[in-house]
Amino acid sequence: MTGATDDEALIRLAQQGDHEAFGHLVERYYRAAYASAYGVLGNSSDAEEIAQETFVQVFQKLDRLREPGAFTSWVWRIARDTALKHIRKHKRIRPVAETPEVESEDRPHTPLIADEEKEQLLAALGEIPEDMREALLMRYWEELEYEEMANRTGVSAAALYQRVCRGLKRLREIIESQSKDAIA
């Protein structure tokens, strides 16, 4: 069972300095921190680095967490902020390509189009409100069911479903407006 109560017990133990409990929490939420960082960086190796850095920070600040129920949102936010700082530190807006720009005979332009599409998606994800982005990435990148998302966040499954629908709609509006700007 990986319910909220279980998490709360692990968080309490970790706050008392229990490394084993913290290790379980990291394993459980590593994908969440990674997905949040990937949403900013678009690069899996950097996202892994940021996910690890996130949990080092989480451990250092754990005694400040007043509401164990807010742990997930807190991890998501730290991961995102750390990723944004990483971009600023390295003076770059966003890495364009995950795949090397090698053109094959079979599909000469596919990687470039895919990269542009990915760039556009990540930029749009960066524009939508945080609660919607979190819900979308949990649902479609972490592939969690609504009940699992509800257990993790303490928000009802119905409310999370609405966030996902609103997030999708908002995402579509932003991508459409990006496309119009690009044509103009």
Binding site: H19, G23, V26, Y30, Y34, A47, Q52, V56, K118, W141
Partner: peptide
């Protein structure tokens, strides 16, 4: 979103790396 989902990380290896850093 599914098309551009990140490759899934190895959570256990990630957790081990975090604990090693700590």
């Amino acid at each position: 979103l599914a098309k551009h989902a990140p490759p899934q990380p190895d959570s256990r290896a990630g957790a081990q790396a975090v604990m090693a850093r700590l």
